[in-house]
Design a protein around this nucleic acid. Structure first.
Lengths: 235, 235
DNA sequence: CTCTATATCAACCATCCGGTTGATACCGGT
DNA sequence: ACCGGTATCAACCGGATGGTTGATATAGAG
């Protein structure tokens, strides 16, 4: 039972929306994706901005394995803002199927990835897509992204020590919820339907239903609305 | 649009549970019922203690019209604790169908009713049932009931000026919810299924569904869980 | 090396819920 | 006298949800 030591991404979901909004409105990007990183360093809870769902599906099914900016590559590093075209030489890029078969056909020229960490652990990431129609990213743009990253990192640390977060943690530990169950509760508290929760957590509807059964049993309730209600009443 | 002036029973439901628990655990009663009183002085949201559901059904269908302690009788008075056997003479009691056909067959000897008011308006009531097996209520018992009533009245006034109540009111007025819609939202926030909400509000399932459609439209959501979620997020 | 906890998924069924349409009734303001 | 807002109810449909059973896989504890 190591539930207590787990860093729980409660509150991250709202943070994620706000951050994605900030990034896409300030920087000139054609598409963007944000995600949470779970304890196994795997990205979950994708939120997209101006990205075709078919493109995202392609990534999820195939190209995530080839992604040079995939979070698993960076979980042990301290990289914050990484530009794909800096990471991969022009030569290698044109031989790289990730570039030739996926990024390029979708009209993308470059990708800038921002990583957020708490206690040195990678907890969230943002991928900003630069289209071929745009000019090459200048150092000024990268600088902007770094400044925004700095503030997001600050904001994230605030979120982790907020009373709301503490309250949520207390709630979850009081009912002895497992890490996955906590995430489900978090999404239930957003009022999301099961299907969306399954998509967000990158697992099947059946799994979510099983998690929900366990949550219902632990909280002694029998509907998602009651779960949200309990959270509301516990403040 | 007189929504703003309406006294809204938000938070009353929790209060109701706590009060019923207090009364039944401290005083020697065989059954008890509590209810909220709406703007039309009609009782809604019944909560029962040790009362057979068939007895309550009989009351709801027939005998509420004959009830000498019915809240409509007391909405304009300032009565607080009323003992039925003090109100109705022994002679009249034995000719009264409410007593001979309803109360007596269910083994009840006497009823003590407690009324709670805010700004002189009757907002909630509690009926305590004394069984025939119990000794006649002594003045000491009535005194206890009056002391408890005093504290309940105090507590109720606190509830009405609590931040939680203010927050809820602000939430409802922000979305321009009608009085009935507020009550529905209040019950949704308890995580209750529609059927229970209908029973509580003493109207049909269809009516609740219509109210919910209006609420969904006003809050721009499309599920009850999202309503609870919105309330939770708004603190 | 078991055994338990956790996480994953499938299939089934009954019920609940959301969405819609349409209808009646009451009240208050124009 | 008419109209808009509120409250009430009915009937229908399809999809979402809750409940159950059973199964597999992995990891950590004893």
């Amino acid at each position: 039972m190591k539930t207590n030591q787990v860093i729980n991404p409660a509150g991250l979901y709202e943070f994620q929306n706000e951050s994605l909004n900030l990034l896409t409105s300030v920087l000139g990007v054609s598409k963007a994706v944000s995600y949470i990183v779970d304890e196994q360093a795997r990205p979950i809870c994708y939120k997209t901005y101006h990205m075709q769902s078919s493109m995202h599906r392609e990534y999820m099914e195939t190209y995530h394995k080839l992604d040079p900016l995939h979070p698993t590559q960076f979980s042990e590093q301290d990289a914050t803002v990484v530009k794909m075209n800096d990471l991969v030489s022009t030569q290698n890029r044109y031989n790289h199927p990730y570039y030739t078969n996926f990024i390029s056909p979708w009209g993308v020229q470059d990708i800038v990835e921002l990583f957020l960490r708490v206690d040195n652990r990678l907890v969230a990431g943002f991928a900003l897509f630069i289209s071929k129609q745009q000019s090459e990213l200048r150092s000024a743009d990268i600088n902007k992204a770094e400044q925004i990253h700095r503030f997001m990192q600050f904001s994230l640390e605030q979120s982790y020590s907020s009373p709301k977060q503490a309250q949520f943690d207390h709630f979850c530990t009081a009912f002895q919820l497992t890490p996955k169950e906590r995430m489900v509760v978090q999404l239930v508290a957003q009022g999301l339907p099961n299907k969306t929760i399954a998509t967000d957590l990158n697992c099947s509807l059946a799994t979510i239903k099983t998690h929900l059964q366990h949550i219902f049993a632990k909280l002694e309730v029998n509907s998602k609305t009651e779960v949200a209600s309990l959270l509301y009443q516990t403040h």
